[in-house]
Simulated scan of single mutants.
Amino acid sequence: MTEISERAFHSPGRGRGLVDALKNRYLLRLLVDKELQVRYRGSVLGILWSYVKPGVQFIVFYIALGVFLELNKGLDNYAVYLFSGIILLNFFGEAFGNGARCMVGNGALIKKIYLPRELFSVSTIWVALVHFLPQLLVLLIACFVVGWRPGPMQLGAAVVAMIIMVIFSFGLGLIFGVANVFFRDAENIVDLLVMVLTWLSPVMYSWERVAAAVPAWGLHLYLSNPITVAVELFHFAFWAPTLEGEWHVPPHLLTLWTPVAVVVALLFMLVGDLLFRKFEGTFAQEL
């Protein structure tokens, strides 16, 4: 009788998480194409909705907050300041929200065949990036119009900000994607979190208002949020180079809080990957 090593067998329905997802790039591309085609099937505007939604958000926030509440006072080029934060938060909201729903949304496929399930989570990041790029193009045009003069440090800050948001939204999407398989209430929690984090981030107002309203430990807690750091890095990259005078970044933004944000985002991704690998073997049964 031929002996077969037990190492040749794996627990059914369980893979190596992100490693398997990255090795199946062809399947990833198919999933991204599927998500985009399904989303815009029967749509007249199609990908143009990537411009319409942030445009409407910008107009509403600019009029309600910038004009009526006069939050634009003391912030030159407030339109650039506002829009640079909006598009970053839109990316986070889409990547996080779709990541939390992707397992349930692809339940029929998960129950029929086996493929690396983390591919669904990775595909939501790529779909969010596809929608983010047109918004970034609009931001760049606006920046050049008002005299954008970035240096290497500002361009590097924009790249780091996107890396933080990709990792953080991916990690949260994994955690809530697992939770949503077992408890559908997770979807509603995600919507609440996106709303809360939007208003707790310095998108419509400056971080200096927070510093003036909370004690030092509260500001430190505020700056330990990866979203806050990413938004401020985007302001540093796109808004600050359009100003004539000097703009004061949060204390130790580049030397302390950016590394903290990277570490926090990586921890969330690690926890999400571990939870995903632990429970993905039961997804088919639960769905």
Rank of each mutant, 00 (worst) to 15 (best):
F236K: 02
W217I: 02
G218E: 10
V231I: 15
A211V: 08
L233W: 06
H220T: 08
V210M: 10
A216L: 07
F236E: 01
T228K: 06
A216W: 06
R209Y: 03
H220M: 05
A216S: 06
V231T: 14
V229H: 02
F234T: 13
T228F: 12
V210Y: 06
I227E: 01
V231N: 05
T228M: 06
Y222W: 05
A237S: 14
L221S: 10
A237D: 03
A212M: 13
L219S: 07
Y222I: 10
H220Y: 09
V229K: 09
A211H: 03
N225K: 11
L221A: 15
V214C: 01
T228E: 01
W239I: 13
V214E: 03
F236Y: 15
N225P: 07
Y222E: 06
P215T: 07
F238P: 01
A211K: 13
I227V: 14
V231S: 08
A212V: 01
A213H: 04
V210H: 02
V229S: 10
H220C: 00
F238Q: 12
E232W: 12
W239P: 12
V231M: 06
A213D: 06
L233M: 14
I227S: 04
A216H: 11
R209V: 13
G218Q: 09
S224Q: 00
W217F: 10
R209G: 08
H235V: 10
P215W: 05
A211L: 09
P215H: 03
L223H: 00
H220E: 12
I227T: 02
T228V: 15
Y222N: 04
A213S: 15
G218C: 03
L223K: 10
H220G: 09
I227P: 00
A212L: 13
H235L: 05
A230G: 06
L221Y: 00
Y222C: 03
S224V: 04
H220K: 14
L223T: 07
A216T: 12
V231C: 01
P215I: 08
G218M: 02
G218Y: 10
G218L: 01
L221E: 04
W217E: 08
L233C: 11
V231L: 04
A216Y: 06
V214Q: 03
N225E: 07
P226R: 13
F234M: 15
Y222H: 09
V210S: 08
E232K: 07
L233F: 13
L221K: 05
A212Y: 00
V210G: 10
S224C: 13
F234D: 04
P215F: 03
A213T: 04
W217T: 02
P215G: 05
L221G: 06
F236C: 02
P226H: 13
N225H: 09
V214K: 01
A230R: 07
N225Y: 09
A212Q: 14
I227Q: 02
L219I: 12
V229E: 03
Y222F: 15
V229G: 03
V229R: 05
A237E: 09
L219G: 04
A211C: 02
V214R: 01
A237L: 08
F234R: 07
I227N: 00
E232S: 12
A216K: 12
P226I: 12
V231K: 00
V210Q: 01
S224A: 15
V210K: 00
E232I: 11
S224E: 00
N225V: 11
F236G: 00
W217Y: 06
V214Y: 04
F236S: 03
R209L: 15
A230V: 09
H220N: 04
F236W: 08
